[in-house]
Design a protein around this nucleic acid. Structure first.
Length: 955
RNA sequence: GCGAGCGUGGCGGAACUGGCAUACGCGCUGGACUUAGGAUCCAGUGUCCGAAAGGACGUGGGGGUUCAAAUCCCCCCGCUCGCACCA
């Protein structure tokens, strides 16, 4: 823009615009940094010296789900929650809390490794670059973080303690009687002393040699190496947790096929915590939706285990899990999952006499073993997607074997079918078609008998009946369920099964133990070495186990499902072989070559925020107690007072972090049973994207709306709505917004477009509204031409004072509920009112302006600080007390009350605010228009809500 | 299929515990200041009828409870999310 441009001449010199905003913002960001404004002091230890006086205030721990620093940088969708927590944290500081708010980086993991491979750089280099870029972008938003606490999971000083926590888990076992984790050293002491006996057979502890003892203890640890069917993803070259596999059997990252393969992997015994993970949800301030998702994921169900003898195999019983043991008399056949280990044992040599349907398409002209093999191939070839999407057509084949129903000794056929899953229960079921829809369908398909054991209601015309009702057909010489309701019948039959020694009541979970190893380079190495007999924990003194710097860090990927995992660290031969002295002299060991999953670092980062530089402990105990609020009344259930993040972590991260926290709680390292007392799920910012005729994305910022359509130049384009992304050509970055309007405008816009938990579209067009607000606020306080302040000690008129106090009351109420959009609406109203006052009087009364600025400060801190300082204040307003309202000023002298006739508003009357019912009614009757409507009519009823409304019901 | 949530102007959204539907902002229309406006300020803006006064309709659709329903209940439609043969 040339100097002669009329633009430059006419715009007042001191108008609040992007240039001025940027200058103010940079200056205040520097000052906050220099003054260490947001350094939250610990009560003692290394982070206690700065702002120490605030450590005696009540604490508040505000936490964001920390970001994953990708190569693409931040777009406008990312900081929504960060801004929300910053507003809340700044507000709470003004209420007198010592607020811990920091921002770490979740920087290990797959995408960083893939990005490094793409760019040909080492992940440590690209990660450092990405973190730097993220920090710059976040700093420009004016977020009030304590910079000392922003750890990265990739820092050696951090993952040293991730390894330490892993060792805590490894060195623990779950004592079911005490219902908590305890150190294995205590287990060994009890076994040695004979106060506890091994639960894995008859061999007494004293009769076991050292290796047998070690093996027993290893089998009890909360971290163990298990051989179980795991999710093997050759496309990524690694195994994955159940939680990382999508419903259609592909990897959440990269969308590669995933195969179930039995592999030896590290597992964490999260299942021991299943009940506590469910029960403790009750004490948390989380949404019911998230709690429900966690409960469903854990999938607790009560039922019974029942053993069925197999005819002709004296030493073999099929164990099933059922939630309906009361229907046992109606079990007319059994089904094993195709992969079940007993299938080969029990499959008959020849077909017994049976209906042709039982042999089905697979057994028509094959011997049983052949039919079983053919069906297994058929089932294995089906992807997870096919298994679920093909309707629910029941397939299967008879094994030729029979089992005995323990209630009546009836011989019932044993099938294999893929509707029974190996991964749930025992991988085998008793089928009760009369009370189970799936079994009914299968029974129809295979001509199997159906015996009702629950009497359906007379009007029931369905097939399987799942409801309650009296048991029927359920009696033998020893026990009768007939007439009992489902609950009583369950209790009775479980008692009988237990007496006979063929069953017991039990609880089953969908939750599996957590598969904890990955065949990747960019992750935490395990603090584990191996001798010839198994894993050995390194002592704390040998931590950290540093990730070796290698040039060959690419994973070994393949599209062959039978390819085997090949961890990149195995290629670092110098590192793998380690000569160590673990107490019995220097010996050679092999290091664990798997690394931990990305979730490991994110399981406990909030704990390290408390004491990030502590080199002797993962957190100082006194510091931990202070920030967990453990000494409060009542004691806090969770350490973090407010945790804000996306709903996508509803089960994964939040379940894992709760698990780790509980282990640390059991071992006495943290003082709350839960990590996150209040969880708030922010919404997402999405954006429009546009495609041309060929379906190619076009630059969204160049598209204009006109004539009811969208155009790029002359070409009409199609609009779609969804994610923000480079490939969709609709990325808007915070940098763009800061440059065009300033960070305060950007912050305020993000908070204004909707409630924090709602997703909303990004509309750059709308940003101007909040920019105008700030511009007006500025103009009220600062003369645009001279730059002088317009604030004076002029008296405040009554109306303005009332508006101010109403605003304060509303703002306080809404900020507490994180309702920032309505907070801003109230501030707009006050601003609009003040603009009129200042316009007519020529001056802005300080007694209103100062509280106004303090209310604006959490949302738009830079402009608030700038005006605050221009009003003569020399210190930051960060710790100024938030304005209080005078309740007496909230009520006006008079109120306008709508008058309804038959529920329709016909007039409004003005009455004294404290007018009672009769007074309101009288005033309403006196109103001209109301009187005209009531004239000649019969008033049947009058409803008066004093101060709210009057309603005449006329006939 | 099961479970959870949502549906309000042209757009983002507001409405406490059932009590004036559409606060606040964008956009749009008109005006002021201007050589000019993608700046700023002022006024208007749910739909329909009407010159106006005023009236009718109106919170996805239909029904119900109530003096009174966006809000509570029932049925239907649509969208979003989670789970997905869990025995």
């Amino acid at each position: 823009m040339s100097p002669s441009s009329p633009d430059a001449n006419d715009v007042p010199k001191h108008r609040y615009n992007a240039a001025l905003a940027n200058e103010i913002e940079r200056r205040w960001q520097d000052r906050w940094e220099t003054d260490r404004t947001f350094w939250a002091p610990n009560p003692g230890g290394l982070l206690a010296d700065v702002n120490a006086e605030r450590a005696s205030l009540p604490k508040l721990f505000v936490l964001d789900m920390f970001p994953y620093p990708s190569g693409a940088g931040l777009h406008v969708g990312h900081p929504l929650g960060f801004i929300g927590t910053d507003v809340y944290a700044r507000y709470q500081r003004m209420l007198g809390r010592n607020v811990l708010h920091a921002m770490g980086m979740d920087a290990f993991g797959l995408p960083a490794e893939q990005y490094a491979v793409q760019t040909g750089q080492h992940p440590s280099v690209t990660t450092a670059q990405n973190i730097e870029r993220y920090r710059e972008q976040l700093r420009a938003l004016g977020l009030g973080h304590d910079p000392r606490r922003g750890v990265s999971t990739t820092d050696v000083g951090y993952y040293r303690w991730t390894q330490w926590i892993f060792l805590q888990i490894f060195n623990s076992w779950y004592d079911r009687e005490a219902d908590r984790a305890r150190p294995v050293t205590e287990l060994i002491v009890e076994l040695d002393a004979g106060t506890r006996t091994p639960d894995d057979g008859e061999t007494p502890w004293s009769a076991r040699d050292a290796l047998a003892r070690r093996s027993y203890v290893d089998s009890k640890r909360l971290a163990y190496i298990g051989e179980a069917p795991v999710n093997w993803c050759p496309g990524l070259g690694t195994v994955l947790a159940n939680e990382e596999v999508t419903a259609d059997g592909r990897s959440e990252r990269g969308n590669f096929p995933v195969f179930k393969r039995p592999l030896r992997q590290w597992m964490l015994r999260i299942t021991e915590y299943a009940d506590r993970l469910i029960a403790d949800l009750d004490q948390l301030d989380w949404t019911d939706a998230i709690k429900l998702m966690q409960r469903n994921w854990i999938g607790r169900s009560e039922g019974a285990l029942v053993d069925f003898d197999v005819e002709g195999h004296d030493d073999v019983a099929i164990r099933v899990f059922t939630t309906r043991p009361d229907t046992l008399f109606g079990a007319t056949y059994m089904v094993l999952a195709p992969e079940h280990e007993l299938v080969d044992v029990i499959t008959a040599n020849e077909w017994p006499e049976c209906p042709p349907e039982w042999r089905g398409v697979f057994g028509t002209d094959r011997a049983p073993a052949e039919a079983v093999r053919a069906y297994r191939e058929f089932a294995a070839a089906k992807s997870e997607l096919e298994r679920t999407s093909e309707g629910r057509e029941k397939t299967g084949v008879f094994t030729g074997a029979f089992a005995r129903n323990p209630t009546n000794d009836a011989l019932i056929p044993v099938f294999i079918a893929d509707y029974v899953l190996m991964g749930y229960g025992t991988g085998a079921i008793m089928a009760v078609p009369a009370q189970d829809e799936r079994d009914w369908e299968f029974a129809e398909e295979f001509a199997l008998p159906i015996v009702r054991t629950v009497q359906p209601p007379a009007d029931f015309d369905g097939k399987a009946y799942l409801g309650d009702g009296p048991a029927i057909n359920s009696a033998n010489d020893e026990v009768s369920l007939d007439g009992l309701g489902v609950l009583d019948a369950k209790r009775t039959i479980i008692g009988w099964l237990a007496d006979k020694g063929v069953g017991e009541g039990t609880v089953n979970y969908k939750l599996r133990d957590w598969l904890f190893s990955r065949q990747r380079y960019w992750g935490e190495p395990f603090p584990i070495v191996y001798d010839d007999h198994g894993p050995i924990a390194l002592p704390d003194s040998m931590l950290p186990v540093e990730l070796p710097v290698v040039t060959d860090f690419e994973p070994t990927t393949s599209d062959d499902p039978d390819a085997l995992p090949a961890p990149p660290l195995a290629r670092a031969e110098d590192w793998v072989i380690a000569e160590l002295d673990l107490g019995d002299g220097p010996r050679q060991y092999r290091r664990e070559v798997n690394t931990m999953p990305q979730w490991a670092g994110s399981c406990w980062y909030y704990l390290r925020y408390l004491d990030p530089t502590n080199e002797t402990e993962f957190v100082d105990p006194a510091t931990e107690r202070y920030w967990s609020g453990a000494d409060g009344e009542p004691p806090a259930s969770g350490m973090v007072d407010l945790y804000v993040g996306g709903v996508e972590h509803a089960v994964l991260h939040l379940l894992y972090a709760r698990f780790w926290h509980k282990v640390l709680f059991d071992l006495g390292h943290v003082s709350t049973p839960e990590p996150f007392a209040r969880l708030f799920n922010q919404g997402y910012i999405q954006a429009f994207a546009y495609t041309d005729e060929r379906g190619m994305y076009v630059e969204a910022k160049d598209v204009v709306e006109r004539d009811g359509g969208f155009f790029l130049g002359d070409e009409r384009v199609q609009r779609e709505y969804g994610k923000i992304g480079k490939s969709l050509k609709n990325v808007v970055t915070p940098d763009d917004m800061c440059e065009e309007y300033g960070a305060d405008t950007f912050r305020m816009y993000e908070m204004f477009t909707g409630p924090l938990d709602a997703s909303r579209p990004w509309n750059t067009r709308d940003v101007i509204g909040v920019h105008r607000f700030l511009q007006r606020l500025w103009r009220i306080c600062i003369d645009e031409d001279t730059g002088d302040t317009r604030v004076s000690d002029a008296p405040v008129d009554d109306e303005t004072r009332r508006v101010l106090h109403r605003t304060i009351a509303a703002v306080r109420a809404d900020v507490d509920a994180l309702g920032f959009n309505t907070v801003i609406a109230r501030l707009f109203e006050l601003n609009n009112h003040l603009a009129k006052v200042v316009e007519s009087t020529g001056t802005a009364p300080r007694a209103v302006i100062e509280p106004f600025l303090l209310m604006v400060a959490p949302i738009a801190p830079h402009i608030a600080e700038e005006i605050w300082s221009r009003l003569g204040h020399t210190t930051s307003l960060t710790y100024e007390p938030f304005p209080h309202h005078d309740p007496a000023l909230l009520v006006a002298d008079t109120v306008e009350v709508p008058v309804q006739v038959n529920g329709k508003v016909r007039s409004r009357i003005t009455v004294a605010a404290d007018a009672d019912g009769p007074a309101c009614e009288a005033a309403a009757r006196a109103d001209e228009r109301v009187a005209a409507l009531l004239d000649g009519a019969t008033v049947r009823k009058v409803i008066v809500v004093p101060g709210r409304l009057v309603n005449f019901v006329i006939g």
